[in-house]
């Protein structure tokens, strides 16, 4: 890894573990981020982890910029040797693919797209070499995804597909971002999947929508009563395709306060994953069957 340090103005240190995305870079960023948090350096006010980087906000009235950067560098060696294992959870997220609402949106912003003649799904399937939309969706949802970052807007997860790099789906973002995206749309941009936690602007290709809220500032949704944001980095997601009837059933259950997401505790070990991707994924998904 080629770790790079830079100041972001006079209140931030930016630490880029690697220019390219990999789970190795994610785990080193996570370990170093944790080491900085545990060091309880005076003047550090917040640490924001990203996919292969993180940023430390500090108060320069309390600690000099050069000093905080030096303190973080000192911790780097620790992070490189630490365990790449995470006690986490796998969550089943129901998705209604090819739903009417995201379809209406993506057609409305067609002139901002690389391929104005088709849908986002047709385009993504074609450029990733799939014969049909069905085969593409199967590749999209059959294997789990890893939450490598939470952010952009409130509680939005960035997801990294847990498959060999050559099998990872990649798509460009819209040529010009849309000014509207339905709340809870499921999409992908670059190699990252996402769930739009709120309605708003966005540039990812849209494939479907989930009935399961992941951000609730009113904290009335039953499983968001303790905290308004559902996802945290390290969560693992398994998409579950649902039809319109099932989508509406879940939506009603959420409203009635009777919906419980399917979640199971799991351990994710990066070395084990790299040694046997199919086997590791099978074990992860098996955990969901036990609940």
């Amino acid at each position: 890894m080629k770790t790079r340090y830079s100041f972001g103005g006079d209140e931030h240190v930016y630490v880029e573990i690697d220019e390219e995305m990999s789970l190795e870079a994610f785990f080193i960023a996570l370990s170093l981020r944790n080491a900085v948090a545990e060091a309880e350096i005076p003047g550090v006010t917040e640490i924001c982890p990203a996919n292969a980087s993180f940023e430390v906000r500090f108060d320069p009235d309390v600690i000099a910029p050069e000093e905080i950067m030096a303190r973080i560098r000192e911790l780097e060696h620790k992070a490189e040797v630490s365990d790449k294992r995470l006690e986490t959870r796998i969550i089943e997220i129901p998705v209604y693919f090819q739903d009417p609402w995201t379809h209406e949106t993506l057609m409305r912003f067609r002139e901002r797209h690389q391929d104005p003649t088709g849908s986002d799904l047709d385009y993504a399937a074609r450029i990733n070499g799939y014969d049909s939309v069905e085969a593409f969706l199967e590749a999209f949802h059959s294997q789990p995804w890893f939450v490598s970052m939470v952010g952009f807007v409130a509680g939005l997860p960035f997801l990294y597909q847990l498959v060999e790099r050559e099998k990872q789906i990649q798509v460009p973002k819209y040529l010009r971002p849309r000014t509207d995206t339905p709340k809870l749309s499921v999409g992908i941009g670059g190699c990252f999947g996402c769930i739009y936690s709120v309605r708003g602007a966005g540039g990812y290709q849209l494939f479907g929508i989930t009935p399961m809220p992941i951000y609730d500032p009113t904290q009335t949704v039953s499983y968001l009563k303790d905290f308004m944001v559902f996802f945290r980095p390290g969560d693992i997601v398994k998409w579950k395709p649902v039809d319109r009837a099932e989508y509406e059933r879940i939506e009603a259950a959420v409203a009635a306060g009777t919906y419980t997401p399917r979640i199971a505790p799991v351990t994710f070990d990066l070395d084990a994953f790299n040694a046997d991707i199919a086997g590791t994924n099978a074990n992860l998904m098996e955990a969901l069957n036990g609940i």
């Binding site: 103005g9 931030h12 930016y14 690697d18 995305m21 990203a50 980087s53 940023e55 790099r165 990252f192």
Partner: peptide, 21 residues
């Protein structure tokens, strides 16, 4: 372009933005 960044030269692997950036 690095893996995962996207094809436009202004793209990076999604990272943190700071206030004022």
């Amino acid at each position: 372009q690095p893996f995962g960044a996207g094809s436009d030269p202004s793209n990076i692997v999604d990272g943190c933005y700071s206030y004022g950036s």
